[in-house]
């Protein structure tokens, strides 16, 4: 088991390194752009005095590595901002300040994260259950009519952009059939039932397309496993088809399902941007689109860093789960 601990440790270090490099890349891309960085950061409607102040806060006169050091310092120990008249403290995970709204980026994120988490995690449950279920079913019924129908449906699912599914769902369910009211976010802590009902459509529109991906992958890797020699062994020993599928073929697909889930998590965050915009959910996606449109750079950078952090975390967790599912990975 010490090999396994070592593997987890190596993977954790790898994640930290990746995160560090990501932060450098993001910093360079956004704060070392050609043109007046202070002006861009502050936003188009800033006065020259404000721009000057921003330039000071970003330490624009210092060399690049010092500037990056200040940026890191802000994240790990906090930072003080002088707003000209007073000094404002920005506590430990300080990602800067929006010069357009005057709010701290960390506060904005903290307010928006629960919405996005509710959306993505809820959708994840749906895509896993629905996707794996469909995949198993179509691998089991392979060659029959029901499998062809499932295949066609999942293909359509894979090919439909998230916002088209969402749009159609919203119009049909809320507009035409009036089965549900147009979604409006309710805090889980306020009313769990309303929370779920209001998120149902966003969940579905985000999850359906990913579920289709999972169905395809589950089916494909189960069929791949079914073609392997060890399946022949169990059949040659009289193990029934159902047990072969449930025990051996599905087990063979587990590792790839875990790997796909890490990738999907990343793409679902992108999908969440669309879903939130479409349904008017006040999550980080909606905030990001807004920040991009008004060019509120500190907010954009904060969002990118935080989502990057979660995606890297998800990848690292997936790698460890993968190693649990397939021990041979640890040896390699």
């Amino acid at each position: 088991m010490s090999g396994f601990t070592g593997f987890v440790l190596r993977r954790a270090i790898g994640a930290v390194v990746t995160l560090f490099v990501l932060s450098v890349v993001i910093y360079v891309v956004f704060y070392v752009t050609p043109g007046d960085v202070a002006q861009i950061t502050c936003g188009p409607r800033c006065s020259p005095a404000q721009v000057h102040q921003v330039a000071q806060q970003l330490h624009l006169d210092d060399p690049l590595y010092v500037r990056y050091w200040h940026f890191l310092q802000g994240i790990f120990v906090g930072q003080d901002f002088s707003t000209g008249t007073s000094v404002e403290h920005c506590a430990a995970p300080c990602l800067g300040q929006s010069y357009q709204s005057g709010r701290q980026v960390t506060d904005i994120l903290l307010a928006k994260l629960p919405v996005s988490f509710s959306l993505v995690l809820g959708a994840m449950v749906i895509w896993l259950v629905l996707g794996i279920g469909t995949g198993v079913l179509s691998a089991w019924r392979r060659g029959r009519l029901s499998e062809r129908v499932l295949t066609a449906v999942t293909l359509a699912g894979v090919a439909t952009p998230v916002f088209v599914i969402g749009l159609i769902l919203m119009i049909v369910v809320c507009g035409e059939l009036q089965l549900l009211p147009f979604p409006q976010y309710v805090n889980f802590t306020d009313d769990p039932e309303q929370w779920a009902w209001n998120l149902l459509l966003p969940w579905l529109s985000l999850a359906l397309i990913e579920a289709a991906n999972f169905a395809r992958l589950t089916r494909a890797s189960m069929l791949e496993t079914l073609a392997e020699d060890h399946i022949r062994t169990f059949r040659a020993y009289g193990v029934g088809e159902r047990a072969v599928i449930a025990r051996h073929a599905l087990r063979g697909a587990t590792a790839s399902v875990i790997a796909l889930n890490a990738v999907t998590f990343g793409s679902a965050i992108g999908g969440a941007v669309l879903t939130e915009t479409l349904f008017g959910l006040p999550g980080i996606g909606q905030e990001l689109v807004h920040a991009v449109k008004v060019v509120d750079l500190p907010v954009v950078v904060g969002m990118v860093l935080v989502t990057g952090f979660f995606v890297i975390l998800a990848n690292a967790v997936a790698d460890v789960l993968y190693a649990v599912a397939d021990r041979r990975v640890v040896l390699a």
Partner: peptide
């Protein structure tokens, strides 16, 4: 019949067992 009366041993012992 399979396994109980007649059992088979295959060529490649690595791929003939479930790795998991």
């Amino acid at each position: 019949l399979r396994g109980a009366k007649a059992a088979m041993v295959f060529q490649d012992p690595l791929s003939s067992l479930d790795p998991y």
